[in-house]
Every structure is written in structure tokens, then in C-alpha cells.
């Protein structure tokens, strides 16, 4: 199914938390600041309902997204108030993909964990948590995965300041 078909179907079955679709568009010739947007089309979903939305996508027969290919976050800028949670789903039987985006406010930076729906999400969420400081409520194993347990700060946030020193080792 193409993106439009998936979107229509999700509207039809009243998927929880579905807000809108965001598709690539050309630049507006009248507005010089507007450069348009390229790349993928994605669905915008309410952050609190992300887990149940994913469950719908997985269990619906006409969608059957069996695989959560990727789950990550983006910090779009220092002044931005939200993180983006990006989820990439993949269906091996129907051979289609879907990109999902949820806006998570930086303050308090909390989102329910999706690892009960897809086990694959567990390690991706651990990575997001340490890199962005997002808290996944209900996560079964909220340890750091790539960074040391006592690493200060969240490295992939735009307001991250590089440490000058770690355990007596100079980083300058």
C-alpha cells in the first residue's frame, strides 16, 4: 500500500492518536523564506498515544507492520520546544513502509515506552534516553546502552556542552 492508502485506512479504522499527514511539498514561489520540504511523507501522531498507535499498525490485517525498523529522536534546534520521535515501520508480508513522527515536549521530556508492543524498541529507547534525556515511562530496563553509566549530559541535544574532563581524563 502506498502512503496515501495507509493514511486513508488508518483514518477509516480510527487509529488512536493520529493527528495529520505531512507530505513533501515544493517551495512557495511567493514566500522567499519558504524552501519547501523534500524527502519522505510521514504521519504525525500524539506522543502519549504512540504505543497504542503502533499496536494498531501491527495488528491490523491490511497494514500488518511486523517489524519496527527504527526508533529514534531528533532535536531540531536549541530554541525548539519539542523533540521529534521518529519511528520507521516495515511490513514483510505486504512490503510497505511507514514513517511516524511524534512531538515530545522537551519539558518534561516524557513518553510512554513502546517496548511492550515491539521488543525491538527496547534498545532503541535506551539509546534515545541516554542521547537526548528523554524518559520512557514503563521501560523495563532503563540503563545506558552506549555511554558509561555516569556520563554527564545528553550528547545529541543541541544545547549539549562538551565536557572538559571525565574521571580525571582531560577531553580538551
Amino acid at each position: 500500500m502506498d502512503f496515501q492508502g495507509i493514511h486513508d485506512h488508518l483514518r477509516l479504522i480510527n487509529a488512536p492518536g493520529l493527528l495529520r499527514a505531512d507530505e513533501p511539498r515544493a517551495a512557495n514561489p511567493e514566500d522567499k523564506k519558504d524552501k519547501g520540504r523534500g524527502g519522505d511523507a510521514y504521519l504525525v501522531v500524539e506522543a502519549d498515544a504512540l504505543a497504542s498507535f503502533l499496536e494498531t499498525c501491527r495488528d491490523d490485517e491490511r497494514l500488518s507492520f511486523e517489524i519496527l525498523a527504527d526508533l529514534t529522536a531528533v532535536d531540531p534546534g536549541k530554541d525548539d520546544e519539542d523533540f521529534w520521535m521518529i519511528v520507521q515501520l516495515l511490513s514483510v508480508t505486504l512490503r510497505h513502509r511507514l514513517a511516524i513522527k511524534a512531538l515530545v515536549p522537551k519539558d518534561p521530556g516524557q513518553i510512554p515506552s513502546s517496548s511492550a508492543v515491539y521488543r525491538a524498541a527496547q534498545w532503541h529507547e535506551r539509546e534515545c534516553a541516554e542521547m537526548f534525556g528523554i524518559e520512557f515511562t514503563g521501560h523495563p530496563d532503563p540503563r545506558n546502552i552506549l555511554l558509561p553509566d555516569d556520563w554527564p549530559g545528553s550528547p545529541l541535544r543541541k544545547d549539549y556542552e562538551f565536557p572538559t574532563e571525565y574521571r580525571g581524563i582531560s577531553c580538551e
Partner: peptide, 20 residues
């Protein structure tokens, strides 16, 4: 690079390598 977001998954020898 023009503004936008793109995810591409390709078949690596070990599985899907995704670049976002």
C-alpha cells in the same frame, strides 16, 4: 542539501542499514 527528512534502508550483509 534542501530541507527535508529522508530515511533510506538498504540490505547490508547483516540486515537493514538505515540512514535517516
Amino acid at each position: 542539501v534542501p530541507p527535508g527528512e529522508a530515511y533510506v534502508g538498504i540490505e547490508n550483509p547483516r540486515g537493514e542499514l538505515g540512514h535517516y
